[in-house]
Nucleic acid binder design. Structure first.
Lengths: 234, 234, 234, 234
DNA sequence: TATGAATGAGAATTCATTCAT
DNA sequence: TATGAATGAATTCTCATTCAT
């Protein structure tokens, strides 16, 4: 099991192997239940080497969190075209988010489940990343109001709460989509977009938010999109 | 800080003391980091007694999860009057949920953070409880559609996703409300209700969902309600 | 090897067994080279029990040092009759000191070799004990001067240096006596007493200090004394 | 702090750098607590080079002990003019000894504290050196007796004990002088010389041994001598 | 009902030491 | 002459769990 034992490789490479193994073990077993022995074995190296490069279990865990947080933020950032209208940006962000988390479930487990469960030092990194995303979403909500030429009657705290709810719903859906076979990132994004933008009330009235044309959009980004399930234009 | 050392009390009482202590420790330290020593000390009994009554750490943890899950479901159930319209039922359920979690943060931490992070046996209990709630919410959505005499054009999976998103948002807001000083359960419920029912689109258009009259409602349930921040009738 | 495995004994007894074992191992191997495993085995208990009672290697070592230091000081104190003239007191103190160290070589090694070699926290305990003894000796020197009705022309620092030298010589002779077969505590005490009181110069002139009558003295204290080798009355 | 990193230097030089570093680390941390990593870093070389030149930790430690022992014996030997009377020789030896140990505290710590605390192989080297010095001192005592034209009534073992006590007192005073600010090597030597030669009894009677004239003596040896504190000529 | 005494099993971490270049 | 990469073997310490009373 674990990586093939290739001897004598440069430090940078070994470090990534170790982080790969650590993310996998931490994500599945949890921080405390993960043992350095298991991580080292999965990485195909001896324990002392793990300590030599990553210093301690805490520091290894932190390195995992940091790497995964940066990768996630980067994935979302790269998936959003800032010149589009706010709702389209939100859609793209959600799509990128669900895509990344579904492709990288262990990393997502580290961020979403493990990091938050083991005290300030670790949680802080995730909190910072989450804050970045919440701020981004908050801005999108404000932009959307401006684009609608409306005074949204929304005080600051209210907007914060909405952004928080949206991000929370996304996080939760990510786990659900991963656990529900046959659910694509695109479908999860569409569901949430509808929920967030149109609301249950409008959905009851048959007025969902309209996701972009899947085919055309896929061509734009080079992705193979399944069609969102609820898509009549409002 | 532990319970006052009273010797020789009936088993049922001792067990509750132990569970109280265990929930507190598990909620704060996490499952793995919690030690049976600390739990026994906080419960004011010797370790062998904990084992005599609760058998093992796993079994103790399971008992905690079960107790807290039942308490939460019961709190929500008791808070909802099933004869009201769907949106009012949802509102009452959210209110009851946020109230319970804010009053019982350690129990909530056990359910939301710890139980899900330590493998199937534990997660299963929470999943079952969550499923109960998701089913309830799903039913509410279907009811709402029926009440609106509409065919909502929503396939089953889509409704499941919406309920999932709603519950996820609620869970996330619970943590946020607990962590944000000055945020009441009622405000959290109002924010989420708006978000869920009206959606961002409608909120942009100045058409939020209308929460019930706080004063009258408070009289109904015996609570002192702060007024929801976004409340013009639609 | 190690103590006979007698199960289930009261804590206080087990603790002494552990300290006995620890003193022996620390004294022979040194602090760092001693392993908790070895100590536990020699004590006839499991390692966790050692930790349960003594908390850590450091704390165990400290407990050893403290116990041995107190035992040594007590032995010297009990061996000296304070109503005698200064030189007799010094003699009795030296005799008690060499007797104790020769009967308890591991304890002496802990104090003299190990404790001083492993940093402030440990050395401090020994330093305090040594200071107590140096103060006692200093007082004896001053008393001796007073008894001789002399102004000894000795400034404070000089007396301190003399006491220090005397104690140092004693410490060194203790190791030598232990390592040189056939050397009794009484002989060591006599040699040092001569050296200290008469000085090499007087010894050259055939004027040594006179130790007390061995037989009579032994009767006083219940000890079987070998006769000191250099004993003509001055 | 380590040596400046100069690449490619002759083996002999590198070896001395390593020994310098090792003496410092061993002297401060102790044998077991010293790590080869730290020593290599302080020496400014890689660990494998240390092994290439010095073979092992044990062998490195032995090399340190040997070097420091030789340096100390050589310093004492060079400080004593063998043509002087015995007491003057003793005085010069003590002065040289205290001077060397105070200038080289890490080396002295290695010899006095570390080497004796870590088993026969190491202690043996120091014991041999010490023996050399004890023999020298023993000879001085015998010489002194001969010079006094006296039969000192001192059997061999007694003389050995006296020499042992004298050397032990010197070792102890060296640590004391190093730890007591403002105490010079010369003062320490004077104190001990008085103690050893005159003895407490004579000191009480106001008849100390007379140290040589500091100024004249300093001219002899090229040292700036502080005056000894107790110096009336006998 | 209740507990003081005790341990097997495993956790993180460190170190002296070597290999391949 | 010199080193980056790598490890086997301990070491300290903790924990869930049980026994005997």
């Amino acid at each position: 099991m674990g990586a093939v034992k290739t001897k004598r490789m440069p430090r940078a490479v070994r470090e990534q192997q170790m982080l790969d193994a650590a993310v996998r073990i931490f994500g599945r077993r949890g921080y405390m239940a993960a043992s350095m022995d298991e991580i080292a074995e999965l990485a195909g190296v001896s324990k002392p080497l793990v300590y030599l490069y990553l210093n301690s279990k805490e520091s290894l865990f932190t390195a995992c969190i940091r790497r995964e947080a940066e990768a996630l933020v980067e994935a979302v950032r790269a998936g959003v075209r800032r010149e589009l209208p706010a709702d389209r940006q939100l859609w793209e962000g959600l799509d990128a988010f669900f895509t990344h988390t579904s492709r990288n479930p262990d990393g997502w487990a580290v961020l979403h489940l493990q990091a938050r469960t083991h005290g300030e030092p670790f949680a802080a990194v995730v909190t910072a990343m989450r804050e970045e995303i919440v701020v981004f979403v908050t801005q999108l909500i404000v932009d959307a109001a401006r684009e609608a030429h409306r005074d949204p009657h929304l005080p600051g705290r209210e907007v914060a709460g909405l952004a928080e709810a949206l991000v929370g719903a996304a996080e939760s859906l990510a786990a659900w989509a991963n656990a529900t076979p046959g659910t694509t990132a695109r479908q999860a994004a569409a569901t949430l977009m509808n929920f967030a933008w149109a609301g249950l009330g409008d959905l009851m009235d048959g007025r969902p938010w309209s996701p972009p044309e899947p085919d055309q959009d896929a061509q734009d980004r080079g992705q193979t999109g399944g069609s969102a399930e609820t898509s009549p234009t409002r």
